[in-house]
Measured scan of single mutants.
Amino acid sequence: MDGTRTSLDIEEYSDTEVQKNQVLTLEEWQDKWVNGKTAFHQEQGHQLLKKHLDTFLKGKSGLRVFFPLCGKAVEMKWFADRGHSVVGVEISELGIQEFFTEQNLSYSEEPITEIPGTKVFKSSSGNISLYCCSIFDLPRTNIGKFDMIWDRGALVAINPGDRKCYADTMFSLLGKKFQYLLCVLSYDPTKHPGPPFYVPHAEIERLFGKICNIRCLEKVDAFEERHKSWGIDCLFEKLYLLTEK
């Protein structure tokens, strides 16, 4: 054995408090879109979701699917093309516009009456609605409950000090017999300040354990050449399924 860690023996890093005071403002996230600093976007979609999607959907149609901090995630069109209703929230209007443009979807925009100064973008087909606002303002819009949440790049982007508020927001959107698919990253948080932030299993239990059954479905090596600039040499991604207790 050469000592290389595999996707099945990932350790939890003990120094989980080192990132707790890290803060990125909404304006800084918007600047990332304006300046093209969106390496977190996956042009081909998320491979773990693609692998498990049909198993999760079980042939159902007409589900309501929520994408927190959606950006221009191509997976939104995957669900819409399968007959589901997609709702996303994203602070960057540019990111939302790029989604519709890159997916060749016509759309309209209208003000969100409950949140002055914000807009919702709706596909002409009517099954994709993307709200351009802070996720913490979203419950004011009465958008209803969801059958499924796809959380990739959301919890790991939320400032650590806001995670409890974020989890409570997610709980307010969950319908009966929900499936909450959650991706988190595992790396040494003493070497990279984030975002994306390190979210250990214990944190998921703390945030969601009282209401959800929590199961880790898969762990994969997600390290890429660009991650060397973070000062790390190891990065794993974990896919969790959260269901109603």
Rank of each mutant, 00 (worst) to 15 (best):
I232T: 05
Y187D: 05
T101W: 08
C216D: 05
E28S: 08
L241G: 03
V74Q: 03
F40K: 05
R82S: 11
P116M: 09
F171L: 11
H41Y: 07
Q22E: 12
K176H: 07
F40S: 06
D2F: 06
A154K: 01
T4F: 09
Q42M: 14
S108L: 13
D9E: 09
L207T: 13
N142P: 13
F208M: 12
L24V: 10
N159M: 02
L63Y: 07
F208S: 00
W33Q: 08
E90H: 06
M76C: 03
F67C: 04
C183V: 08
C216N: 13
L63T: 10
D221K: 07
L217Q: 08
N142W: 08
P116K: 06
N21G: 09
E43R: 11
D15Q: 15
G209W: 07
S123Y: 05
Q22A: 04
C70L: 04
E90A: 05
I149M: 10
R206M: 11
G62H: 12
E28A: 10
F197W: 05
T118E: 11
E203N: 08
C70V: 05
S134E: 03
L53K: 04
L242S: 00
L63C: 04
W33I: 05
Y131M: 08
K228H: 15
R152A: 11
S124A: 15
K50G: 07
S106M: 06
I214R: 01
P160G: 03
L53V: 09
T243P: 01
N21Q: 15
C133V: 09
L217G: 01
V23C: 12
N142F: 08
A39D: 05
A80L: 08
H46V: 07
T16I: 09
A157L: 04
T101G: 12
F100L: 06
I158E: 01
C216E: 13
D9R: 05
A202C: 12
T113A: 07
D168M: 11
D151F: 02
K60F: 15
D221S: 09
V86T: 03
K20E: 08
L26T: 06
E203G: 04
F79E: 01
E237M: 08
Q44P: 08
M148E: 00
I232Q: 11
F178E: 01
Y187C: 05
G194Q: 03
I204G: 01
C216V: 11
K50E: 13
K164R: 08
K119C: 07
A222L: 11
H192C: 03
T101H: 08
E102P: 00
V199W: 00
H46M: 09
K219G: 10
Y198N: 14
T101R: 12
P160L: 03
K245D: 06
I158C: 08
A39F: 13
S92R: 03
V87P: 00
F223M: 08
H227A: 08
E203S: 08
G3L: 13
G36F: 08
L235E: 01
R226H: 01
L181W: 04
T4H: 15
Y131W: 08
T55G: 07
D31T: 14
H46P: 08
V89Q: 05
S106E: 11
A39G: 11
R64M: 02
L138F: 06
L155D: 01
I128C: 04
S125T: 15
L53T: 06
V34H: 09
G3Q: 15
P139W: 11
T190L: 14
F121D: 05
D233V: 07
L94S: 06
P111G: 11
T169E: 03
G88S: 02
P139C: 02
P189A: 13
E224A: 15
L185Q: 11
E218P: 03
W33K: 04
V74I: 15
K238C: 15
F56D: 08
S124D: 13
D162S: 13
V120L: 06
D151Q: 00
K20I: 05
V86I: 09
G36P: 09
E98V: 03
A80T: 07
K60Y: 11
K164C: 13
A39W: 08
P111T: 10
K119E: 01
G231T: 03
H227Q: 07
L24R: 13
E90T: 04
V156M: 05
W29S: 06
P193E: 03
F197H: 09
N35P: 08
S129I: 12
R163D: 00
L130E: 00
N159V: 04
K50R: 08
S125E: 11
K60V: 12
Y240D: 00
E218Y: 12
E27I: 11
M170G: 01
E17P: 06
H201W: 12
P139M: 04
E237N: 00
L130P: 01
D221G: 09
G144L: 07
T118V: 13
F197Q: 12
G153K: 05
K37R: 10
L138R: 00
G71L: 03
L8I: 15
L217D: 01
A80M: 09
T16D: 06
I128G: 00
F67W: 01
F40T: 06
T118K: 10
V220A: 05
R64S: 10
K60T: 13
A154R: 01
F197N: 02
G36K: 09
H52M: 02
P189M: 10
E203M: 15
E98W: 02
I143G: 02
K50C: 13
P68R: 00
K210F: 14
E28R: 08
K177R: 11
E43C: 11
E11I: 14
L155C: 14
K228P: 09
P160R: 04
G231H: 14
F171H: 15
D54G: 09
K37T: 13
N159S: 09
A157D: 15
H41T: 09
K60H: 13
Y107H: 04
I211Y: 01
S129H: 15
I135E: 00
E27F: 08
L182K: 00
G209E: 08
V23N: 15
G62V: 11
K191C: 12
Y166V: 01
I112E: 02
F136R: 03
G175A: 13
E75P: 03
E225T: 10
G88Q: 01
V18S: 10
G59S: 03
E75Y: 04
C183W: 05
S229D: 15
M148R: 02
D221C: 15
L217R: 02
E27K: 04
A167M: 07
F66S: 01
D188L: 04
W78I: 02
E102V: 13
H46Q: 06
I10G: 09
L235G: 09
S124R: 06
L239A: 04
G144S: 10
G62A: 14
Y107C: 09
W78L: 06
S7E: 14
I91M: 05
K51R: 14
V74R: 10
G83V: 00
E110L: 13
E75G: 04
K119Y: 07
V184K: 07
G59M: 14
D15G: 08
Y107S: 03
K122E: 03
F208A: 03
D9T: 11
K191Y: 10
L241M: 04
V156E: 05
L185T: 10
R140K: 09
L182A: 02
G175N: 10
D2R: 10
P68W: 00
E93T: 07
V220T: 15
D151Y: 00
D9W: 05
E203Y: 15
Y187E: 04
D15E: 07
V89N: 14
L24F: 07
R215I: 15
P189D: 01
I232G: 05
S108Y: 09
S14G: 13
T6I: 12
C165A: 07
C234T: 11
I112F: 07
I91Q: 10
L105C: 10
E225A: 11
D81V: 03
S125C: 13
D233P: 06
K228E: 12
H192M: 14
P111K: 08
G62Y: 09
T6W: 13
E224H: 06
E11S: 10
F67D: 02
N159D: 07
C212F: 03
I149S: 02
S229I: 02
L26G: 06
F223W: 10
F208N: 00
T118A: 10
V34E: 07
L53D: 04
E12W: 10
L217I: 09
L155V: 05
L24W: 08
F56H: 07
A167G: 08
R206A: 14
I143W: 04
Q103K: 06
K37M: 14
G62R: 14
F236L: 05
E90F: 05
C133H: 01
Y198A: 08
